[in-house]
Design a protein around this nucleic acid. Sequence first.
RNA 1: GGGGCGGUAGCUCAGCCGGUCAGAGCAUCGGACUCAUAAUCCGUGGGUCGUGGGUUCAAGUCCCACCCGCCCUACCA
Length: 469
Amino acid sequence: MYITTTIPYVNARPHLGHALELVQADVLARHHRRRGEPVRFQTGTDDNSLKNVLAAEAEGVPVRELVDRNAAAFEGLRGPLELSFDGFIRTSGHPGHRAGVERIWRAVGHDLYRRHYDGLYCVGCEQFYPAGPCPDGHGEPLQAVSEENWFFRLSRYQDALAELIRGGRLRIEPAARRNEVLAFVEAGLADISVSRSAARARGWGIPVPDDPGQVVYVWWDALANYVTALEGGDYERWWVRERRKAHLMGKGVIRFHAVYWPAMLLSAGLPLPTDILVHDYLTVDGRKISKSAGGAVDPVALVAAYGSDAVRWWLLREVPRVGDADFTEARLIARYDEDLANGLGNLVNRVVTMVCRFLDGHVPEGEPPVGVSGAVHEALEDFDFRRAAAAVWTLVEEANRYVDREQPWKQAGPARERTLGGLVAACRELAVQLEPFLPTAAARVAAAVGGDRLGPPAPLYRRLSGVAH
RNA sequence: GGGGCGGUAGCUCAGCCGGUCAGAGCAUCGGACUCAUAAUCCGUGGGUCGUGGGUUCAAGUCCCACCCGCCCUACCA
């Protein structure tokens, strides 16, 4: 399975919203790897957005400097969030990217033509609007642009796209998003501008082949990353031969991924992605996350304060499949205490304690009294991380119930050994099931219940909130 | 303007093709237990399922209108 995230433009440091998408992609990647499937998990940054240029100007630093610094911050999420991506592409630095963009451009040449265009351009959105103001409310007024650009005959692919989506060849999840895209396509597709004058782009970006006065539209440039990130044999392996190719993205950029991008590929005669997986947005304390407004939560700071398990668990367990989710530190703490400390941590702790106290640490043979069946996989196939996380957690809940039901402290001899052996086995199984979601927790649990003889108990997670006495 | 998505217990949310669907978790309250991180387990209370109509033997669950929040899209139905 080839799994990609969108590549954010790097006009600022990453916020919690980026973490959501990366963690979701990471869970998919780890899950499918664990099933023994070949997986390539690809992410990166869009360095060529005009917004990056403007951010650099506002800050008074060279574009290159700002882009390098912020891109490094995005790549640096790998450690704190425990991301397992295999590839990280930067559109300004990746050796094959520019050449790949040019190659696609030429392959699509039969659908490109020059046209004079008068329009109002919103830099914030990187797109044209027929009339102002920008619906997203980006502060700056729309730029009146009058220039000759390259256009792509998107209109030509309307029927083909509709058919691909209707037939499920191009799967869009959740279904509501699929309907949304279908409605958009069936309403009629107009050709789109795919270049801009190099002057207006401040010279930043990839020049149009054989037309140095023009720069390739940043979206064209960015979308191409999904194939340009794959060089040499990797392209053949992951874009041509791979059966499942999934793009993860936020709801704001569906049109680019589910319409423009497939149309580009159709025109170029290249294979298409198979899954478009769309998540909604996060708000923080009830407010929209705004990179510029500072209300953004720094995922790295959050991890530093609460640990990667806490952050990943909140993102996976609390964010619904449909609808924006509101992040608050209180909710994260509540989830941490309830699930990680009281649920998982306490379970492992009580099991280890009993094995040490009653059996001198020796682990008896045992079959786990609980299991998860296919619920996790089914939920992930539906792109429902919350349901998947809940499915894994049934192991914790059932194991805790099992302890209370069997009451091993009252048991003796073989009965007690059978119970405790089963519980240790259950914890080991839990470690395995947990790995795609919480790698650190999985490792901690595995360490606590590994081997023939268990060491002394040590709490895995301390409660964060004060406990009333 | 068009299209779509939400509006279900105090909070966060499940409820697919209509008939144990009125639910789960948290919070509250009561009980049990003591292996454990004052944790765990069991049980209780609480909702006119946004509003108003309609279809049906039967509707959160389908249809229409409206209200609130949000998203996409379009100044050409």
